[in-house]
């Protein structure tokens, strides 16, 4: 299972990639929308972890474009408080689930286990 972590904060990408690798998953990171789309084509991930606020392209726009290329792509939104959204909204945007920063790491791990590791 390959995951692409998209967050404009480099440190978040570094940490989440390491976190995923410790759970036995493959992970790559991108720090803006343009880089995310490039990486998406390059690594063909199964999942994206996605921040909605990005300096260049809006996170949802990025997700829409990815779905055009691979309709089976799964997404987990991890975003800041300002752009709080409801579960329904997250679903209608094509995301499987969402977490609001600051996130509970244990909750993230539970979601990863449930959705990705199927344990």
């Amino acid at each position: 299972m390959k995951i692409l972590v998209i967050d404009d904060e480099v440190e978040v990408g570094v940490f989440l990639c390491d976190f995923l690798k410790r759970l036995g998953l493959e992970a790559e990171k991108a720090t803006c929308g343009a880089e995310a789309l490039k990486m998406f084509a390059l690594v063909n991930p199964d999942w994206v972890f996605l921040d909605l606020k990005m300096p260049d392209i809006d996170g949802l726009e990025v997700l829409r474009k990815m779905k055009e290329i691979n309709s089976g792509i799964q997404a987990l939104i991890i975003t800041g408080r300002d752009d709080e959204l409801s579960e329904n909204e997250a679903h209608s945007l094509g995301a499987r689930d969402y977490l609001i920063k600051p996130i509970d790491l244990d909750e993230l791990r539970t979601k990863i286990k449930k959705y990705i590791l199927n344990t």
């Binding site: 570094v14 940490f15 920063k101 600051p102 509970d104």
Partner: peptide
């Protein structure tokens, strides 16, 4: 690097 948590990124209730 990979073990450092960015400021404000995580919480414990």
């Amino acid at each position: 690097a990979g073990l450092k948590i960015p400021k404000g990124f995580t919480k414990i209730s």
